[in-house]
Design a protein around this nucleic acid. Sequence first.
RNA 1: GCCGCGGUGGCGGAAUUGGCAGACGCACUGGACUCAAAAUCCAGCGAGCGCAAGCUCAUGAGGGUUCGACUCCCUCCCGCGGCACCA
Length: 989
Amino acid sequence: MKKYDHKKIERKWQKFWEQKKSFAAKDFDNKKKYYALVEFPYPSGDGLHVGHVRSYAALDAVARYKRMDGYNVLYPIGFDAFGLPTENFAIKHKIHPRVAVDKNIKNFTRQLKALGLSYDWDRMVDTTDPKYYKWTQWIFLQLYKAGLAVRQEIPINWCPSCKTGLANEEVINGKHERCGTEVTKKLLKQWVIKITKYADRLLLDLALVDYPERVKTQQINWIGKSEGAEIVFPIVIPARAGIQSSGSRTARASLVASGMTENIQVFTTRADTLFGATYLVVAPEHPVVASYLQSQPHTHGVWNLHEVKEYVEKTLKKNDILRTAEDKEKTGVELKGLRVKNPLTGEALPVWTADYVIMGYGTGAIMAVPAHDERDYAFAKKFKLPIKPVIEPVTGIPAEKEEKKEAIVAVVRDSKTKNVLMLDWGPRQANWGGMLFIGGGVEAGESDLVKVAQREIAEETGYTQVSFIGQANIPVNNHFYSNVKNRHYVARMHGLLFELKGGSQTGLKLDSGEHGKFKLAWVPEAKVVAMVSDPGHALIYRLLTSGDVYTGEGTMVNSGKYSGLTSEEGRRRVTQDLEKQGAGKQTVSYKLRDWIFSRQHYWGEPIPIIYCPDHGEVPVPEKNLPVLLPKVKKYEPTDTGESPLAGIKAFVNVKCPICKKPARRETDTMPNWAGSNWYFIRYADPKNAKEFASRRKMDYWLPVDLYNGGMEHTTLHLLYSRFIYKFLYDQKLVPNPEPYARRRSHGIILASDGRKMSKSFGNVINPDDIVGEYGADTLRMYELFIAPFDQMVPWADRGVVGVYRFLMRVWNFYQSNQAKIIASNPLFPGGRGSGEAEKAVHKLIKKITSDLLDMKFNTAVAAFMETINKFEELENIPQGVAERYLILLAPFAPHMAEEIWQEVLGHKKSIHTKEWPKHNEKYIVEDTLKIVIQVNGRTRDIIMVPVDLPQNKIENQALASLKVEAQLQGKTIVKTIYVKGRLVNFVIK
RNA sequence: GCCGCGGUGGCGGAAUUGGCAGACGCACUGGACUCAAAAUCCAGCGAGCGCAAGCUCAUGAGGGUUCGACUCCCUCCCGCGGCACCA
């Protein structure tokens, strides 16, 4: 028997496939195409990670399966090699990034080839190849021409020690990753890509694609669409501000001179709370603040310029992390003297600036409604600003005919035990009964709610020694049914909290219907929430005990003509009315920010723009692309805050393409994401020198049918590349609106200690070692086997051995002559065998095919194991069965399958060109059924019956079972449940 | 805090979507082979009671729906991931 020499076998077939170009994708085949894509790796100095292998092996299995199933498959690979890691690697090892990339790509290529992945190597791309990044620059120019690439002064992360701008990726916990200095914000002119213009389509078109739900929701949340209204608050200067009245020329003139606008626009999703706005807050970066500071103090009297200036400066120094992660204590300062007018009420409101309002969202200004917003509430409490409730919650379900009443709900807490007094009205019915607090109507003539509540407490519980603690800030309108009165009510319930001071009780004084209907119950605090059965009572309890602000919807109050409307209707009406008077409009706001595209680093694509003293920004003419990254000796970041390219005269100095006068090149480079945005398009036509890809080839190959990559790219690469593709689609340059029809993500592989694999922990598994010891087939199959594909899982050395043992058994099985039996069988002409083996292989075909389509690789591998176990039990395996098993295995263990196929079974052509087998249900169907017999839902016996046995016969057989008989002793059968072909269940009493 | 995902033997995980809980693999135990070990092969392997047939308990906790719940509903606890003053 031949030994399994994985090294020899794997090397042999890898060479064979490479020489024959077995897996090259043909452009324009008459077969159906299938484009399987894995995120191309970043060729780091550490080499391939076992995490890469998981993704690549999985899609390799799919790609190989699809080829065998008759598809023309494109399964390409390339390298994403620009960016910081390489630059840092180069600096650390004192070699040029170009050299480092070439070296790393070579190493990665060797490792990938040793895994026997069926890539079409002729289509390999490298984002740092000028022939490639020419088109990355070209795409940038298209964005520029469309007005989507613009230069803006934007606050960026800034390292004051290195004097350089930083990418977000370089900021770790608020510190510069290289020097540890705290990062600040600095205004710099940056290239910005207007991805926000596509926010809505990026959101809507998620409906067109098959992505995992969590990927979709993560993108939806990231885009963060909120529908709301923009409301215009005109700025007024009140008379008491000093010298001049609001119409005063002097005051106005000063404001206008300082650039002050006529009004402040706010964004809100709750226009229904406009009557509850008691002040305005603008972000410290808001232009109103700047104009306020520039205005002339002596004309304005009470202006507190100094204080405002100090606050703004302090805030701007903080970076985002400090500003948000710092204690949540609200800070802010009033822009004294400045007032705005509520456009609907005419009420004058003060204006504050506070860092809890951020410039980047909405309009950078809000109307504060402290009664119905937690942040505004906290701010108003701290600075003693008025709080005005304008929404009352509504609970319960309205009935057609209901009586209105004012009511109280009293929560009584024992001062010692902290238990809460509840009334137990028996089991909860549809809208009455259950556990409630003490409640009662306010009767005519009663005005003091505390007295009303004390009266009700005494009447219903007899307790008189209760002291008032507090009242809920808003009443709850509760629709309910009174069983006692047999009537529907809507009660405006005021919540009051009491403490019991003494246990003495007087006689109860109940309404006629109340006698004996309820019991008193002292409920521990922790259980109250779970026990209270009425939603209105539950809400009151929350308002009373947690001090929560009511931020939900409800019915409008204290809102003039809008009072009584629901929140939803109120929002519509208020917005409409504002629109009519030109004081507002319906609008939409997104959390998504524009994409900062400039990096002050050497190792990236130069941005193809020239600055001319006469013509300003001039794009590099397309015929002059690529703008080559110059070869330099020094590529370390400078300490001037400019890209290292700025110091290279031969690069910087250039003639203006329009007037030929001396001009300067842009010296910033593009971020890492630029090259990876569109690489999957290039695979369709990787060598094209005239276009980024030919339209015909794109029409054939795109979109990607299956794209696998990491979860960590969901809101970066995945979103960016969707955006770029949509942009190209709008330019009529690519054929579809979405680049990836189906997206899947693999879980990361942790080290066996459960931590992340990391050189510093010394727990890294190198794929080379596993390939060396057990072979690529074992490594690939192991990684598919360990866990569901999308789940994170720790590495287990022993698990590798398990898969290796399995492959050894497969090897030995085919080496023995067990697999070459039965030439023909009378029942199955054509050399196919009958019975168990045939059934097993048909089941396997079905299982493997559906698992490949569903990406359930772990259960597919288990099925291979199960089937080989079965084969070993059986005496004879027909050759046809053995061959089909091997064909199914080919996408998973391609080397071993090929070796056995050609060397042991003597076939002349590669197994990977063999057609994928089809299963036939008729071989799978069992001729006897296993019927589970249950008594009261518990399995008591299992019987085997012929498939065609009718129900009554099955039931009779079930009854005849001795084990069932034992259960039936002295009981009667109430009901018999039969589930076709599956079980009989006797319900007995 | 909000959103999403998850919790099943000693471990990684199966379970046709409401119908035999624990497939497959690892670890472990016993046996065969061996002078011995490794490798390999055979058998066992959720817990408790029992000589056994078998019975009882068991899918994070508690409740509910159902003839029947890992699966559906409610409440809670824990873990992971994302977002985080987004008005």
